[in-house]
Nucleic acid binder design. Sequence first.
DNA 1: GCCCAGGATATCG
DNA 2: CGATATCATGGG
Length: 308
Amino acid sequence: MYTSEISLAPPYSFERLLRRLETHPDPQLLVDVQEGTLRRVFRVGSRPILVSLQFQGSMEEPVIRLRAESTLSETEQQLLEKTVRHMFSADLDLAPIYDHMRGQQPLVILTERFRGLRPFLDSDLFQCMVKTIIGQQINLVFAASLTERLLELAGDTLQDEEGRVFMAFPTEEAVARLEPDDLRPLQFSQRKAEYIIDYARAIVNGTVDLDRVWQMEDEEIISYLTSLRGIGRWTVECLMMFGMGRPDLLPAADIGLRNGIHMVYGLAEKPDEKEIRRIGEDWAPWRSVCSLYIWEAVGAVRRKEVWE
DNA sequence: GCCCAGGATATCG
DNA sequence: CGATATCATGGG
């Protein structure tokens, strides 16, 4: 066993993260609201390890207590800690973003209501891309259930000491070995099955090198990855936002974002993509967190949190 | 039955 | 070039 404490930049609202997870289910996460704990499997190197992350401290002094159910080498400890810090946007400074948002009337209430909410990122780019492709055009609940079925089909299974079952996200190789006919019974569309498998094969055979994108500008990444069939601009924007934690993305084609801006800005009609990009210009260079908060306004309504 | 969900593509005119 | 049909499924 290995434990450590990870300090995050304040403010961090664990409560807001938990609320968000209600409407954005992640089949890899076992959430225990009572304990304030998230449990899931991480691949450290290639080894799947069960980890529990417990929220401690407070909004202004946030700490996560990490507990791995295996002994870890020093390298593995550092790798795991780095991944967790990445997932929780541990080093993101929200203060200048809130200052910027407070300059725009419709966003003020969001900074108050969702104070301390940070991007909750995927642990790696491969699974972020697969989950984003799965999420194209369908609702979040259906997307989560497709992802869960993919985990059951091709992921590795672990059990904790209480006998609870955890599934690790399938490796690139495991997805690359699938055929569309394996995914069709899981209710993937034929095309979506092809997109995901083709993508995994491109990673495995080296046609695409995800490690390279960290050195690229946003627009470079978009042109690099949209060359793959089934991966459009929206998908890469989501990858940069939820996989890489890039600060200035606006997935303007997103239906949820359109609905959210419609609501938050009190517009007469639903804005189109061009209108979204126009409104979003005022959010630069922090369009990612602004988008997240707009989405969260939609989530709050869906969860029947008070809204006016 | 119809429309919408955190889209992308093929195929029109 | 822009507009349109197609894809799968579940919920309202």
